[in-house]
Design a protein around this nucleic acid. Structure first.
Lengths: 207, 207
DNA sequence: ATTATCTATAGATCTATAGATAATGC
DNA sequence: ATTATCTATAGATCTATAGATAATGC
């Protein structure tokens, strides 16, 4: 009979692979499981993507790009006054991570387990970072000169932001029992936690 | 000839298994690699530990206990005034994580990948948490009443502390390029980062 | 002619155990 | 007698490909 959707299957495989790799990692993932989840025979997976490794790289590339993008979100809107800018940046980053909650651990695990492969990526980030951070640093320095906030290294501040946001979301299932009734509903907890993270960062720069 | 050290081999295997599991995870770890690293034949590993799974559980149990212990460090010394108490708690926790830098990711990955297995652990933590947190919460409430610091939920505060500390150490290799010259020496960076985390938390509760 | 698909299976690992043998401690 | 050790191999997966067949687009 021959199926209609040529690209359909390729996409199905990619979608299934994303699921599998993000939740189980490279070693834990099985190409047979991916094929089954995608509703194709196992051979089709190899027909389209040749090897498990190359399929994985497709996913990794996409996820790394997403991760970089999420870092940009923290930079915030340069047209806003610095405090507002940080508020919106933190909030945007938090929301992004909340909607891609498996992403950070996936990227961290991957980079830590094959550090040699990511020299290229590190360079890209370095350049990106230098450029983008300097704008925000300037904003901060100016506001500090005017006595509105304290002096602080933007890299330290951004690191605190991503720490607080990512950790809260990644370890939510883990923290649940620790935090008692707070953890009952994910949504409610996350919104409280987002507010707390913003509060923490604003206190940090408050004069 | 027969080797002298009976317990020697068992310990060698455990040590090698710890290394292998912490750096590669359960799926990525190979019992053959563990045996080779321990300097024993592969069969010996199974003789002593029966299965890969049971060897893994030995390591997991030990690491979970360590992880719990590290959480206790954050509670700090109850005899100190609250600000000092937090300073010392944050610092102790930071140092602990710095010396066990593969621990947090290992535990997080394991709990997230097999959530069903950890209901027991979650209960243990819940009880522990309730008891231990309440003492610190009381300290905080009292200081807040006296107007020394602001009111805050101890669970939120502790979550911020572990977020900042763990994330800084886990992602140090990853952040290195982002932070430029700051990342040149691990030691120097870590001490700066520890100071920054303390600063951030103290600002959070400052009146 | 090329592209998509399936069945069947080769080939590579990996975990685990069987079975033989040597050492040890009573 | 029990404990420790080795060699050899069974058995289970998993990735990958060969080879045949059906559909598609010129």
């Amino acid at each position: 009979m021959k199926e209609n959707n040529k690209q359909g299957k390729e996409q199905e495989i990619l979608a299934a692979a994303e699921q599998e790799f993000l939740s189980k990692g490279y070693e834990g993932a099985r190409t047979t499981s991916i094929a089954k989840a995608a509703g194709v025979t196992h051979a089709m997976l190899h027909y389209y993507f040749r090897t498990k490794e190359s399929l994985f790289e497709r996913i990794v590339d996409e996820k790394f790009r997403l991760m970089l993008q999420s870092m940009l979100a923290v930079i915030g809107d340069p047209s806003l006054p610095v405090v507002e800018r940080l508020k919106s940046g933190i909030s945007a980053h938090f929301d992004f991570v909340a909607q891609n909650s498996k992403l950070p651990l996936f990227v961290i695990n991957e980079v830590l387990s094959r550090p040699e492969r990511y020299a290229m990526l590190q360079n890209k980030m370095k350049n990106l970072a230098t450029d983008l951070f300097s704008g925000l640093q300037q904003d901060i320095d100016n506001a500090a000169e005017r006595g509105e906030i304290v002096h602080i290294d933007v890299r330290m501040l951004l690191m605190s932001i991503v720490s607080l946001n990512i950790f809260a979301i990644v370890t939510f299932p883990f923290m649940r029992p620790l935090i008692g009734e707070l953890g009952e509903e994910r949504e409610r907890f996350l919104s409280q936690r987002k507010a707390e993270n913003i509060e923490t960062i604003l206190h940090r720069i408050k004069r």
